[in-house]
């Protein structure tokens, strides 16, 4: 099966409010996909459903062909999906290195790994691996800094390094370019391209349409919890419903 992530007829209601309506899409291995749409369209909710923060009301979610709909959120990373968050969710008083090492948890096996003094032994396998992940997002120089001392944009990228370390096939990145300046955005794009070149499948939620257009070959547009368009960036830009959703009915 070429599709690494597959949503089939996903719906989600909070009480009487249906925020995701019968959403289906598939992401092929190695593809770079963007989930876009106006504020409140349900983009982050889709991430929360895939990562298991909320249970779905209806539909199935498959990763690598395996149905993970009923898998508890704690075990989903082991099934192959990892994520970052829209707001920074790092431990502020831990070092960057320690923060990203938390991302290794899905791959530990048994008491020997849990009781390994990884904050005592320098140059351990875990530390080297975490440094390598930081290096992949260009942040190795910050390894020893406390997370809360760093700028917002850097902290967002630390989250990407942490998500990488879980060994997942699919990376869900919630607004990775938010708070970055033009140069940082360009750097991020190059890094994400290289990460996906190494086999990872990337799904981003992003408002920066230039970023989406340059990075992603596959765009899914949501509005009020419904998929209103899907295709290449150029294709979705031509869709009347997309123009309407972004600019209003008169512009269309």
């Amino acid at each position: 099966m070429a599709d690494v992530l597959c949503l089939e007829g996903i719906s989600k209601s909070f009480g009487g409010l249906e925020v995701i309506k019968n959403l289906s899409f598939a992401v092929a291995r190695g593809q770079r996909t963007a989930l876009v749409g106006p504020n409140g369209a349900g983009k982050s909710t889709v991430f929360n459903l895939i990562s298991g923060v909320y249970p779905v009301t209806a539909g199935r979610i498959r990763v690598n062909g395996r149905d993970i709909t009923e898998v508890p959120s704690r075990l989903r990373m082991r099934c192959g999906v990892s994520r970052s968050f829209q707001n920074i969710r790092l431990v502020p008083h831990l070092s960057v290195l320690e923060n990203v090492m938390i991302g290794q948890t899905p791959r530990i096996s048994g008491p020997a790994d849990i009781l390994y003094p990884l904050r005592l032994v320098r140059g351990s396998r875990w530390q080297r691996e975490a440094l390598a992940a930081l290096d992949r997002v260009g942040l190795a120089e910050f390894a020893g800094s406390q997370a809360h001392d760093l700028p917002y944009g850097v902290q967002k990228q630390i989250e990407i390094a942490r998500a990488l370390l879980g060994g997942a096939d699919v990376l869900l990145l919630d607004e990775p370019a938010a708070g970055l300046n033009a140069q940082e955005t360009e750097d991020l794009m190059a890094r994400l391209e290289s990460i996906s070149g190494q086999g990872a499948t990337i799904v981003v939620v992003e408002h920066n349409m230039q970023f989406v257009g340059a990075l992603c070959g596959h765009v899914i547009v949501l509005d009020f919890g419904e998929k209103i368009a899907e295709g290449t960036p150029a294709e979705v830009r031509r869709e009347p419903r997309v123009v309407e959703a972004y600019l209003g009915v008169n512009a269309a």
Partner: peptide, 22 residues
């Protein structure tokens, strides 16, 4: 100094994220 201690800090700081990271 072990992963046990590191995970304990993570749990203290953010239950939801700790859970998602396994």
């Amino acid at each position: 100094r072990t992963r046990f201690g590191l995970n304990m800090v993570a749990v203290h700081h953010d239950n939801a994220v700790s859970d998602l990271f396994g």
